[in-house]
Design a protein around this nucleic acid. Structure first.
Length: 473
RNA sequence: GCCCCCAUCGUCUAGUGGCCUAGGACACCACCCUUUCAAGGUGGCGGCACGGGUUCGAAUCCCGUUGGGGGUGCCA
């Protein structure tokens, strides 16, 4: 973590999450955008935890943010990283700025309660605060909020992704700076912090765009030049609504726990609203960092498609060497399973799993005393009239192989195929019963390597056990 | 309601006035490979929301319509 002050000309980006107990994938994308830019431009990525709402303030949640960021490659050990800072620590500064505004006549106190503001709005038919106390010259006092005196005219926001956006200040109400209890509001705190941290680029989600004219006005009132704004489209669900904690799976931690790997997640997130040049979207972070530009970010909301995430994940898993795959999947296996055995089938698993969480269920039969036989699978495999006699022949033939000490995948395979031929059954059908007997399921990795690994005794025992099952009625 | 943003295959996108007969990826379908399932290979389906302009020429520029989204707190 490096908090030394960089040269003033270098760009300073910031990521300002509020702790909520989990890390939103949309937040992850925003953080990644900021990170890519900061690193590419040789600037700083400032992390500021916006913890001013007491309801959203638990120390362990900050650690969650740090962990999540580190997982996607945004590490405090990197010199680009600065922070974390805590907004709550700057409260005095926020209040001081507000008082400066008041003294300069750019803000005024108002004694209306929230309900009263609403009543007046309802009565007049115009929504929002009507500027009731603008010229009443109220002094500060308990219960009185400090409101910003929004100047007349247009506010032009220059946005790196959207271009020029114009707001008429007639539509911007005199918003609250300080609550009745004297504590600062988000808009104020956010601006004062960005200002004092000398932030040059504010890259955040589109939901903040309506706030921007207010914040820009604050920057100017505080005597500073506003930063470069950039509002990136929100992430939406299948119903095209903003991803929400209630309805949707939005926690980065959850995807991680479900076996999504970080590089796949990062790559996928970066392609939501943006695409690298060329014919493939699967590109290493180095290229993303080199190519990413705010000007190229799409303007419309992007659907967070788990199916495509899974496709990316599978692709990334397959890009790994077998050894890497083995090491990475280790944590998803019960500790008592024999790693040497697993290592021998890992390669067969690697091309078959979309996530790391899918590994264990695919190889469990190698480690369980008696894998549970899937009833439907067994019934289906035993349906043809040749199925049972064929499996009995397999049992005999395999038994002989075992006696001759010829227990290896190659021989097992040709033996099975030979028996299939005598029944005029293709290998695919011939192996069905054997597969269920050994693995308990109708689908799985290639069969003969595992059977070799399992050993003759156990394999033959499983075939006998299956054969002894009651006939399906 | 008001303010703001947006609009290319089902989805994510390329495209910045002629290179577009609109390209890629995911999904889907077919075939090949194959001991199941995957993976891989080949091929296919499928889109510029609509209406007006501007221009020799428009997915690209302008206007309108429609349709989505976001915001509208003494939350952040």
């Amino acid at each position: 973590m490096s908090n030394a002050v960089p040269p003033p000309e270098s760009p300073r980006f910031r990521f300002a999450p509020s702790p909520t107990g989990f890390f939103h994938v949309g937040g992850a994308r925003t953080a990644l955008y900021n990170w890519a830019l900061a690193r590419h431009l040789g600037g700083r990525f400032v992390l500021r935890v916006e913890d001013t709402d007491e309801a959203r303030n638990r120390p362990e949640w900050t650690q969650g943010i740090l962990d999540a960021l580190a997982w996607i490659g945004i590490s405090p050990d990197d010199p680009t990283f600065e922070g974390p800072y805590f907004q709550s620590a700057n409260a005095a500064e926020h209040v001081a700025a507000a008082e400066r505004l008041y003294e300069a006549g750019l803000a005024y106190y108002c004694d209306l309660t929230g309900e009263q503001v609403q009543e007046r709005a309802k009565a007049s038919g115009t929504p929002g605060y009507d500027g009731y106390s603008r010229d009443r010259g109220l002094e500060p006092g308990p219960g009185r909020v400090l409101r910003f005196r929004v100047p007349d005219g247009a506010v032009i926001v220059n946005d790196a992704v959207r271009g020029r956006v114009e707001f008429d200040s007639a539509n911007i109400e005199d918003f609250v700076l300080l609550r009745g209890n004297g504590t600062p509001m988000f808009l104020l705190a956010n601006v004062v912090d960005d200002l004092s941290m000398r932030i040059t680029h504010v890259v955040r989600a589109e939901e903040h765009l309506p706030n921007t004219p207010k914040q820009q006005l604050l920057w100017e009132a505080l005597g500073a030049r506003p930063p470069q704004w950039a509002h990136v489209p929100v992430l939406v669900n299948e119903q095209r609504k903003k991803l929400s904690k209630r309805r949707d799976k939005v926690a980065l931690e959850q995807y991680r726990a479900d076996g999504i790997v970080a590089d796949a997640m990062v790559n996928y997130l970066m392609t939501l609203g943006w695409a690298p040049a060329g014919d493939t979207e699967i590109v290493p972070w180095e290229r993303i960092q080199a190519e990413f530009r705010l000007e190229d970010v799409n303007h419309s909301p992007a659907f967070f498609d788990v199916k495509k995430l899974l496709a990316f994940n599978g692709e990334y898993l397959r890009m790994r060497s077998v050894d890497e795959f083995i090491a990475e999947s280790d944590a998803w296996l019960p500790p008592e399973w024999d790693r040497a055995t697993y290592a021998q089938v890992a390669e067969l698993v690697q091309t078959r799993v979309p996530t790391l969480a899918d590994v264990a269920p695919m190889v469990d039969f190698l480690f369980l005393d008696q894998p549970e036989i899937d009833e439907a699978a067994w019934t289906k495999a035993m349906k043809p009239e040749w199925a049972r006699p064929l499996l009995i022949d397999v049992l005999d033939a395999f038994g002989q192989l075992a006696e001759r000490g010829e227990w290896n995948a190659g021989v097992l395979k040709t033996t099975l195929e030979g028996i299939g031929t005598t029944y005029e059954v293709k290998p695919g059908k011939a192996q069905a019963g054997l597969r269920v007997a050994i693995t308990g399921r109708s689908v799985g990795p290639p069969l003969y390597e595992p059977i070799e690994l399992l050993g003759a005794d156990e394999s033959l025992r499983r075939i006998r056990a299956a054969l002894e099952r009651p006939e399906p009625s």
